[in-house]
Design a protein around this nucleic acid. Structure first.
Length: 239
DNA sequence: TAGGCCATCTGGTCCT
DNA sequence: AGGACCAGATGGCCTA
């Protein structure tokens, strides 16, 4: 049990043990259960032996009414314990509810970030929403393809910028900033394929299990269905 | 109906 | 100490 809870409950034990009523006051406590179990079958048997360390073990108990007082004290302690356990349960519950709330919020934020990521990835004709894993994999490959495009541009086409030389006008929003979320997927398919990421060991496509392309596999987008992949032709150098 | 995806709850662990 | 993060469990919804 956390220390704060123990502290809290011990305080509450003191403060509530004298309270007049509780819905839980009628419940059996552990001590009372033990006491009953230790009693002989005959209901009028000898009194329950006091618990270890409990006060009143000495001759004071011999006095008339002392045993009743001890039993009453024990009952009070038992009720307080039940109340404190109920309170502990309640505190745990409220903390759990708060934690659940935070976790829900955290996941909502994560989903919002995924939505933002989806919005800067090429959209698809049927407005198919990428799943989470598809979004991450697609983004990974998309970034790789864009970086590769820039690299090729720097190598082979001096002068004009990579964007002007290599990308069709429709793909201009791809680089360097995020593409327009409203990009028409059809417009992404006009580029001509030149190189294959599969030939590059560093390509995220090279090691994966799904390849896409007419004839030769041009790109591999693990986990993506083929009908989502045709837009990737935008990523290759444009002549 | 089985399987995939998702949201939520939950308890454990790490971090500040 | 409390919040963030994580992974497992569970149940609902949807689709082939």
């Amino acid at each position: 049990m956390p220390a704060s809870l123990e502290t809290c409950l011990s305080d509450l034990d003191c403060s509530t043990s004298s309270s007049s009523s509780s819905d839980l006051s009628g419940f059996l406590t552990d001590e009372e259960d033990c006491a009953r179990l230790q009693r002989p079958a005959s209901a009028s048997g000898p009194p329950v032996p006091p618990l270890r360390g409990a006060p009143g073990i000495t001759g004071a108990l011999d006095a008339p009414g002392a045993q009743d007082e001890e039993q009453e004290r024990r009952r009070r302690r038992g009720r307080a314990r039940v109340r404190s356990e109920a309170l502990l349960h309640s505190l745990r519950r409220s903390r759990r509810v708060k934690a659940n709330d935070r976790e829900r919020n955290r996941m909502h934020n994560l989903n919002a970030a995924l939505d933002a990521l989806r919005s800067v990835l090429p959209s698809f004709p049927d407005d198919t929403k990428l799943t989470k894993i598809e979004t991450l994999r697609f983004a990974y490959n998309y970034i790789w393809a864009l970086a590769e495009t820039l690299r090729l541009a720097d190598q082979g086409l001096p002068g004009a910028s990579a964007r002007e030389r290599l990308l069709p006008p429709q793909c201009a929003p791809c680089l360097p900033g995020p593409p327009s979320p409203a990009s028409d997927a059809e417009s992404w398919g006009s580029g001509a394929a030149a190189t294959s990421p599969l030939s590059d060991p560093s390509s995220p496509a090279a090691s994966e299990d799904f390849a896409y392309g007419p004839g030769d596999p041009l790109f591999s987008f693990p986990g993506l269905s083929k009908d989502l992949l045709h837009t990737t032709s935008c990523f290759v150098p444009y002549h």
